[in-house]
Design a binder for these strands. Sequence first.
DNA 1: CCCTGATTCGC
DNA 2: GCGAATCAGG
Length: 230
Amino acid sequence: MSWTDERIDRLKAQWEKGLTASQIAEDLGGVSRNAVIGKAHRLGLQSRPSPVKPNDPKVAATAPAKTAAPAAEATPAPAPVPAPVKATPKVAAAPAEVLRQAPPPPSPFPPHVPTGPTGAQLRSVGPGGFLRQGPGDQAPPAAPAPPRRLVPARPSPEMAGKTTLLDLNDKICKWPLGHPGEPDFHFCGATVNPGFPYCVQHCGQAFQAQMPRRDRRAPPPMPFGGPRVR
DNA sequence: CCCTGATTCGC
DNA sequence: GCGAATCAGG
């Protein structure tokens, strides 16, 4: 279906009348809501209360800036530098220290903490090349709030002191360590970066700046079909 | 989930 | 120029 003069007139009339893009598209037939919106913009029909757009004309208040508007100008893009989350102590791990044992977190319970005879941590390399972390690399997990009376038994002694599914709440980092099904699968357990499901360190792994669309092409199809997307 | 308009960008 | 895909707020 093409944009004949008649259809364009109809679009203009209805758009200015305040019908929604969906309604106009349905009325015209043969076009999608997106097509209507796209056409309306190209026609210069613009601005109808968009649910998304904030009202821009904020002035006065805090802007002493801009005296004479620079006529034609290269507005330097203010490179958005991701604000470093404040006060993140950088733990410089010396190579010799990689295998160190983290001191067991203080616990009000019987210190039945068999941390392993050798102290060697299993490591593996995940997609993207990052090293999966072992428990010894974590900041000591916050001691869980002591239950009043009954304590559910740990599934196994190996899990003593680990953050399990049962320990998770909205204040605990849910970054998984190891893999589900493995005997010592557990979670990071550090205090979360407020507003996120992970601690500061794991937020850094989980969230990255999105690249422009042309740079993220669909991944090659996987032999088994791959996970369903949207 | 649904809806909305705005925007991007491959065609 | 077109409009699907995407975004982002309600």
